[in-house]
C-alpha cells in the first residue's frame, strides 16, 4: 500500500464512504486460469458458478463465460473456417475475470463504491448491499466480465468463490486451474473498448495521488 489517503477495502467497507472513495490497491491472491485446448464446451463451469453460488442455473450471470464463445469464438460469427468455437477451429476460449490490478476498471467506474476487495483471496467483489444496479461497471470492463442479475437487480462478478472456485472443481476436463495471481490484463485482448467514465470525485483522488 502506498499513500495514506488510498484505502484498499474489505467487503464491509463502511468507513470508506467517510474517508473518500474506495480505490483498490491490493493485489488479488488468486486467479482462475483456463486452457482452451482442453475445453470441451460443456458449460458445467457456468452452471456450477451460478447453481452452487446463487441456487439457479443461469449462464447469463455466470462469472466465467463460455456460451458467448462456444459456437463461433471470441470474434462473433465468422463464415468459413477462420473463427473459433465449434463452428470454427474448435477452440472454446473461456472468458475469466483477471482480478485486475490497480487501477481496477470495474471498481473505479462504480459510482457507489460497490466493488471492493474481499479477503482471503482479495478478489474484487460486488458488495450487493451497495450496488444500485446502474451497470456502470459493465461499461468499464474491457473483457465484459461484469454480469448483471436481473432477478436481484444487482451486478455480479467473479469472487473466486472465496478461494475454492466451484468452476475449477466442476470442469470435467481439467481445463481450469486456480493459480496464484498474475497480471493477465496486458495479455488477454480486450473484447470491447470500455465506455465508462470515472466519477469526478474518484478522478480527483487519482490526481491527488498521482500528483507529480
Amino acid at each position: 500500500m502506498t499513500g495514506g489517503l488510498i484505502i484498499a477495502f474489505s467487503a464491509s467497507g463502511a468507513k470508506a464512504a467517510k474517508e473518500g472513495p474506495v480505490i483498490i490497491m491490493d493485489q488479488a491472491e488468486g486467479l482462475v486460469i483456463a486452457d482452451p485446448t482442453k475445453c470441451v464446451g460443456c458449460r458445467r463451469c457456468e452452471l456450477a458458478c451460478t447453481e452452487f453460488n446463487d441456487g439457479k442455473a443461469s449462464p447469463t450471470i455466470a462469472r466465467i463465460k463460455i456460451s458467448r464463445n462456444l459456437n463461433f469464438g471470441v470474434n462473433g460469427i465468422p463464415t468459413g473456417q477462420r473463427g473459433g468455437g465449434a463452428w470454427g477451429n474448435g477452440l472454446v476460449i473461456q472468458d475469466i475475470c483477471n482480478q485486475c490490478p490497480h487501477p481496477v476498471p470495474c471498481a473505479n467506474a462504480c459510482p457507489n463504491d460497490a466493488i471492493v476487495v474481499r479477503p482471503p483471496t482479495n478478489a474484487r467483489v460486488v458488495d450487493s448491499k451497495r450496488c444500485s444496479g446502474c451497470k456502470m461497471c459493465r461499461r468499464a470492463c474491457p473483457w465484459e466480465m461484469m454480469s448483471f442479475d436481473s432477478g436481484t437487480n444487482k451486478a455480479t462478478k467473479c469472487f473466486l468463490c472465496d478461494g475454492s472456485p466451484k468452476c475449477v472443481e466442476a470442469c470435467p476436463s481439467g481445463a481450469l486451474t486456480y493459480a496464484a495471481w498474475r497480471d493477465l490484463t496486458g495479455k488477454i485482448p480486450p473484447r470491447v473498448a470500455p465506455t465508462a467514465i470515472v466519477a469526478p470525485e474518484k478522478a480527483q483522488t487519482c490526481n491527488e495521488c498521482h500528483k507529480k
Binding site: 447453481e51 452452487f52 443461469s58
Partner: peptide
C-alpha cells in the same frame, strides 16, 4: 437470458 431455479438447498444440490 433467464435462469432455471433450483428449489432445494444449494449445498444439497451440489
Amino acid at each position: 437470458t433467464g435462469s432455471v431455479r433450483i428449489a432445494g438447498n444449494k449445498e444439497e444440490w451440489e
